[in-house]
Each structure stands twice: as structure tokens, then as C-alpha cells.
């Protein structure tokens, strides 16, 4: 004898796998002899499938560019703000393309960022009270000395900028998602503040796409918090892996006009 008074809700739970084993078995037995019951269960299976299929295209739609950029910016800002003065330094973690910098970390150090300037496409979002060291201006690199260093100093090396008290340290060279050549570098000033920055080549000039100013006592090394912000930025712009030494040398040589 089979029961035929199963409610819609019960059959739905059966179709969704949300029903206990005993009741499920009872329905299965009843379905063997009852085509109408099979159809009622099928309805719930089919509606689930139909809904899932119908909504799939929305998932595949490309995200509006400004929405994606706005959220990426928010995430980067959140990471930066978290490392505001007083915040503890985080264990240093990185992977993949950023492994190259691991060796720079001699010891965790108390970090405080005087200013965080996270730029997307060369757009400066905000600036603290401390002035950015000379030579680095919003948008374009105006110092000939810095410009020269950017096209000549291999990653891993540092150099005193001529006629200046700034020390330039090249960290890495990579291409952004638009294939523009970008250089990650640090600039130490006489007051011992360090700028962690990324400049990308646009036409005949370098444009600062990202910069974080780490103040005074960082001892010539950017604190971990500033590079976490940088990491967020690098992943946001989909930065390619760092160029190999030879690739970098060639890319820089090309910029200097093949000499």
C-alpha cells in the first residue's frame, strides 16, 4: 500500500536532498507505482535546474570596470588604513611574484606610515601632512636624476642620486596588465623617510602609479606594513612577474635608446 498524500513541501525536500532517509525511502517506494508522484517530484528537480541555468549568464557577465576598480581600491585602502600609526606589524608573508623581496626583511619593525598614497592609474587618492620627497611629484617623475636612475639601475642595486641626498634602490621591474614597463623602487631621504613606489613608463616619461611614504626611523628599509599595501596594489593592477635580469637589462636599454 502506498501513501499518495505527500505534500508539495515534503516532495520538494525529497528532491533537494533535505529529507530524512526513512521518509525518502518511503517516497521512493511510492514513486515506483505512481507516475503522478514522479511528475510532482520532477517538478521540483526541474525548477531547481531551470533556475540555476537561467541565472548562469548573470554570473558570466563581465563586471563593470568602475565597480571592480572601486572595490579593489577599497580593499587596498583598508589594508593601508589597518597599518596606520599604532598598528602592529604583521608577520611578513608573500608568495609567487613577490618572493623577490623576502630577503629585505632583516627584522620586524614598528611601522607607522606618515602618508599613504595609493594610486590607481596614476591617480593620487590622498596625501598626509609630510611632503613627498623632492623629485617625486604626483603623476610625473620630474627629477632628471630619478629618471636616469629608473632607466639604468638594475634591480637589487642602489645608488646615491647625483646632486641630492636621496638614495635610490631598485627593487624589481615588471609589466602591468597593459604591458607597460613598471619599476618598483625605494627612495631614502636625508630625514630617513623611505618612499616605496611604483612608476610606470608612459610615453617618454615615468609616472608614479603608487607611493607610500614611511617616516623617519625605518632605518632605510620600508616597514612591512607599507609593502603589504604595495602587495594589495600589485595584485589589483594584475602585475606580471618580475623580469629576469637579462630581460630587465634589455627593457631598460631599449628605453635609453638602444645604447
Amino acid at each position: 500500500m502506498t501513501r499518495t498524500d505527500f505534500s508539495d513541501e515534503l516532495l520538494m525536500r525529497f528532491a533537494d536532498g533535505e529529507l530524512d532517509a526513512a521518509t525518502s525511502a518511503e517516497i521512493e517506494r511510492a514513486m515506483e507505482a505512481d507516475d503522478e508522484l514522479v511528475a510532482r517530484v520532477a517538478l521540483f528537480i526541474e525548477t531547481r535546474h531551470a533556475a540555476k541555468t537561467a541565472m548562469k549568464p548573470l554570473l558570466e557577465e563581465p563586471l563593470p570596470a568602475d565597480l571592480e576598480a572601486a572595490v579593489e581600491r577599497m580593499v587596498a585602502e583598508k589594508l593601508a588604513a589597518r597599518n596606520a600609526p599604532g598598528a602592529a606589524v604583521l608577520p611578513f608573508q608573500r608568495g609567487g611574484a613577490n618572493d623577490r623581496r623576502a630577503s629585505r626583511w632583516l627584522a620586524p619593525m614598528a611601522a607607522s606610515l606618515a602618508a599613504v598614497v595609493a594610486g590607481f592609474g596614476g591617480y593620487w587618492l590622498g596625501l598626509g601632512t609630510d611632503p613627498v620627497p623632492s623629485g617625486l611629484l604626483p603623476l610625473a617623475v620630474s627629477s632628471p636624476a630619478l629618471d636616469a636612475a629608473l632607466v639604468s639601475v638594475p634591480s637589487g642595486e642602489e645608488r646615491q642620486l647625483p646632486n641630492s641626498n636621496q638614495r635610490f634602490r631598485a627593487i624589481a621591474t615588471f609589466r602591468d596588465s597593459a604591458r607597460a614597463l613598471c619599476r618598483e623602487f625605494e627612495l631614502d631621504s636625508a630625514d630617513r623617510s623611505t618612499v616605496v613606489s611604483v612608476a610606470c613608463r608612459t610615453g617618454a616619461e615615468w609616472r608614479v602609479a603608487f607611493a607610500v611614504v614611511a617616516p623617519g626611523d625605518s632605518g632605510g628599509y620600508a616597514p612591512a606594513s607599507s609593502t603589504e599595501t604595495l602587495d594589495a596594489y600589485l595584485s589589483a593592477i594584475d602585475a606580471g612577474p618580475p623580469l629576469e635580469t637579462a630581460e630587465e637589462a634589455k627593457a631598460l636599454r631599449d628605453l635609453r635608446g638602444g645604447t
Binding site: 508539495d8 503522478e36 511528475a39 520532477a42 517538478l43 526541474e46 525548477t47
Partner: peptide, 24 residues
């Protein structure tokens, strides 16, 4: 609500109990 949603969906989109498969 879910059971009602699916009954309504089936009715509006023509997924009927008697011919669920082909209509879907």
C-alpha cells in the same frame, strides 16, 4: 516560500507537472 516559489515558477514558465521534462 521555496515550495511556493517553485510552483509559481513552474506555472509561469510552463514547467508543468505532467510534462515537466520536455517543458523545462
Amino acid at each position: 516560500r521555496l515550495a511556493r516559489a517553485r510552483k509559481n515558477l513552474a506555472e509561469a514558465a510552463g514547467i508543468t507537472e505532467t510534462s515537466a521534462r520536455s517543458q523545462t
